[in-house]
């Protein structure tokens, strides 16, 4: 069974969920969505589990033809998504019909868009996750990026349950920009830098180089001074860890980071700011600002409470009705043609 076919894959489109958890001790990177907030919101809009797999789309969007009536949602960076050539809303539930074509236009903001599908994508889990890890050729669609001609299936039953039209509240939609101040928790190896080095790190603006990918972001800017070299015994690396190798310019470790590394880590970007970082691209500007662990953990708890509240609101509004039939009609009004989808409810 095929739910959609890829006519054009875009620049880099992969299947990502919340990542491969529990295999770090064997050296297997976690991978997973770069922007986990947008992944969660896209899934919520189509009625999925929040951590279900979606397509992660990078800078240039794919062209996708639907072979089934489905619910989709697009979140994250705005690359002007269109259905049959007409611009559609992001952060909203969208009902598509067999034969519809999804395409993308100009990039308006951000770097990565997420396309969720009701039921999620039907691909095999590798070590408990559907996430693509391209360097290891594992997960996602046959361990590789999406290519032209690929057919993807939704996991759910044919058709879908009508869930109404969900919209993420305006104030909760991330505002993306090409300048970002990332909040960080200092350490674990901040004691390996001179006072001047720490000042440089916190008072300088860094520019994202063109070496920025799912594994890490190399930044250009003022060089950060070590006390006695950049090498440490290899230790574990968390998402958002900021390594400073001997050359003094920081590298932020992202979703596909290796599990361990031997460079000093001056600080770590906090969880609620990582989705914004994931939306930056070459040439964008980054500053760093220190917060405490307490503060960072308060922020992540507040975000979680808000997400739970939004989901609860949707579920209370939701009609538990399934669609029996879905058809398209072309209606002409004043010489203008409109496509109207009609859904017969049970």
């Amino acid at each position: 069974m095929c739910s959609l076919k890829v006519n054009n894959p875009g620049l880099l489109t992969t299947i990502q969920d919340f990542g491969r958890i529990g295999y770090g001790k064997y050296g297997i990177p976690r991978a997973g969505a770069m922007d986990e907030l947008s992944l969660q919101l896209a899934n919520i809009l189509v009625g999925n589990d929040r951590y279900e797999a979606a397509l992660e789309i990078t800078l240039i969007g794919p062209e996708i033809e639907f072979y089934d009536n489905l619910i989709i949602a697009i979140t994250g960076g705005n690359i002007t998504p269109k259905i049959n050539g007409k611009v559609i809303d992001m952060y909203s539930t969208i009902y598509v019909n067999r034969g519809d074509v999804l395409s993308f236009g100009n990039r308006v903001d951000g770097c990565r868009a997420y396309l969720a599908l009701s039921g999620g994508f039907k691909v095999e889990e590798v070590m408990g996750s559907k996430s693509s890890y391209l360097r290891g050729s594992i997960g996602g669609y046959k361990g590789r990026r999406i290519m032209a001609g690929d057919s993807l299936a939704a996991s759910g039953d044919k058709g879908y349950k009508y869930i109404g039209v969900r919209r993420i509240p305006k104030d909760f939609i991330p505002k993306l920009s090409n300048k970002y101040t990332a909040r960080v928790i200092m350490g674990p190896e901040d004691d390996r830098f001179t006072d001047d080095g720490i000042k440089t790190f916190l008072n300088s603006q860094y520019i994202l180089s063109n070496q920025y990918d799912r594994m890490g972001y190399r930044l250009n800017g003022a060089k950060i001074q070590h006390i006695n070299g950049a090498d440490i015994l290899s230790g574990g690396i968390t998402f958002g860890a900021i390594q400073v190798p001997g050359h003094g310019e920081p590298i932020i470790m992202m979703a596909d980071r290796q599990t361990t590394g031997g460079y000093t880590k001056i600080a770590n970007v906090i969880s609620v700011d990582l989705p914004y970082l994931a939306q930056l691209k070459a040439g964008d500007k980054v500053n760093f600002k220190v917060v405490t662990v307490d503060k960072a953990q308060r922020l992540i708890r507040q975000r979680e409470e808000r997400i739970i509240e939004i989901v609860k609101g949707f579920e209370e509004d939701g009609l538990k009705i399934s669609v029996k039939k879905s058809r398209n009609f072309v209606i002409a009004v004043n010489d203008k043609k409109f496509i109207v989808g009609i859904q017969e409810l049970e």
Partner: peptide, 10 residues
């Protein structure tokens, strides 16, 4: 004991 971000403890 050292924090490594808000989700890691070393």
């Amino acid at each position: 004991f050292l924090p490594s971000g808000d989700s890691g403890l070393i």
